[in-house]
Write a protein that binds this DNA or RNA. Structure first.
Length: 216
DNA sequence: GCGCCGATTGGCT
DNA sequence: GCCAATCGGCGCC
């Protein structure tokens, strides 16, 4: 196994048995290690979003709606829920809170740490900036697909390691790319990270529109 | 059955 | 900034 996986601990199932917004915040700084296809890639989580299940209009678990695609969202906390977005891109979630709750945390961006050449080959781009900056990009870079859907993270080809040091500042903002309940403060970003799916807000915005607030 | 929509991305104006 | 690609789910009535 890799140096990263020896040096740190894979997150235990109990880590995920709490509300999704707590999981989403604490996952910032954790490291995702993939060995899909025998190829080693890894990245640090810099951006997540929480989807709260029954009461969250933007959640695939809203009112516990079920279909063939989202069945694994109702599995055990700590399981992968991977679905096809816009008919083209895989989006990877970790089930949170409680079995049947329909709540999960979406991985939105990683800082590439290892296997960048593998990522470049899978993504078909050279720029490190574009390897894992977005939910569809990071799954492609790490080889994550529907094959992971429903798998227990700890025993799958893609594991998440507990952050070794206390995390830095985390910014909380509205969620991206949705129309329902988008303004709920459920997007979490490593403050100032250049690896997020959107560049850090400019020091002064011409229109001064809201882009989020930093919290300690 | 038909048409629209979506937790996205990349190419073009 | 606009928009096509691409497909499963949903409402329609």
């Amino acid at each position: 196994m890799t140096d990263e996986r020896r040096a740190a601990e894979v997150l235990p199932v109990r880590f995920f048995g709490r509300p999704a917004e707590i999981i989403a915040r604490e996952l910032i700084g954790a490291v995702v290690v993939s060995q899909v296809g025998g190829l080693y890639t890894a990245g640090r989580i810099v951006e997540t979003e929480a989807y709260l299940g029954y009461d969250d209009p933007a959640s695939h678990g809203y009112r516990h709606r079920r279909n063939a695609q989202n069945a694994e969202l109702y599995g055990r906390p700590g399981n992968w829920y991977v679905y096809l977005s816009y008919g083209m891109h895989w989006c990877a979630n970790l089930v949170a809170h409680a079995e049947g709750s329909g709540s999960a945390v979406l991985l939105r961006a990683l800082e590439p740490l290892a296997g960048l050449d593998v990522m470049r080959q899978r993504r078909g781009v050279e720029s490190a900036r574009l390897l894992c900056a977005g939910p569809g990009r990071l799954t492609q870079a790490l080889g994550m697909s529907r094959a992971l859907d429903g798998a227990a993270m700890r025993s799958s080809d893609v594991v998440v390691l507990r952050p070794e040091a206390a995390g830095g500042e985390v910014s909380v903002t509205p969620r991206i790319g949705i129309t329902k309940a988008a303004e709920w403060p459920l997007r979490f970003v490593a403050a100032g990270s250049p690896w997020a799916s959107r560049p850090a807000r400019a020091a002064s915005s011409p229109r001064g529109s809201f882009r989020g607030r930093s919290r300690g």
